[in-house]
Design a protein around this nucleic acid. Structure first.
Lengths: 126, 126
DNA sequence: GCTTGACCTGGAGCGCGCTCCAGGTTGAAG
DNA sequence: CTTCAACCTGGAGCGCGCTCCAGGTCAAGC
């Protein structure tokens, strides 16, 4: 059982983001105290950790909603959920390859500056 | 010398984006035909390739503008430009580490689905 | 009992990076 | 000479993912 601020701290999402996720139905069934305050369970935290993972890897919120919805529908959607994650993982792999490639370009550019940063340089560059 | 559509094709930016980059001063000194149409040189293309690299690695446009401005100021800013790229490269490294870590989580999640996707499954998951 | 800070809701607003549109011009091909 | 696709400009609009705000409620500590 975690207070909102604690849930925020542990998940790395802001309070506003937690409320937002609930509002759009991404996070559902979050409990309340008698006074109306949110109470996050370990289960909720598990979801938040997953969302953190998916967001950090660039999944759009709409797709996370789809996943969450499937999970709510029950176990018979497990295969579809798995497929969704696998497709995403493939996109992430592509993303990692691109990032690596462009990182290498960047490093080469920097290396180029190193050859040029003696006295008597000469270039207008990109 | 490239027509706008050719420059777009080669750089991977849309025509609108090329115009936008010029409008905000990121790309400057793009030539025109007598009739007012853009003409991109190999130099311009070089810039676009660099911008592609920086965008793909997540640099904000404001920072690319800063870089371009420095380059326009002349060779005496080379050290500062290099520093800018190095700081960016460091951020990219961090980004790659995070991406890798979350990708591993994702893979583990998928592997978990594999253990569960026999008959007689049992989980409400995240 | 009172204070104070964490929390609530509904809804507006924002920053980014484009993207689209209207209305007009250009220029190569037929 | 006509056509038509590619291009021009200025400016509005958009999709995303939050973030902020007003105005109020709750509850732990003194």
């Amino acid at each position: 059982m975690y207070a909102p601020s604690e849930a925020a701290r542990r998940s790395g999402f802001s309070l506003d983001t937690l409320r937002y996720y609930e509002k759009i139905g991404l996070l559902s069934g979050v409990g309340r105290t008698s006074g109306g305050r949110r109470v996050f369970t370990d289960d909720d935290l598990g979801w938040l950790v997953l969302f953190r993972c998916l967001r950090d890897t660039g999944m759009p919120i709409a797709q996370m909603c789809r996943y969450a919805e499937l999970a709510r529908e029950g176990e018979h959607t497990a295969a579809e959920r798995k497929a969704l994650l696998e497709e995403h993982a493939a996109r992430v792999e592509e993303q990692m390859r691109l990032l690596q490639r462009q990182y290498d370009h960047l490093r080469e550019k920097i290396r180029y500056y190193e050859t040029v940063t003696g006295p008597a340089e000469a270039t207008a560059l990109p």
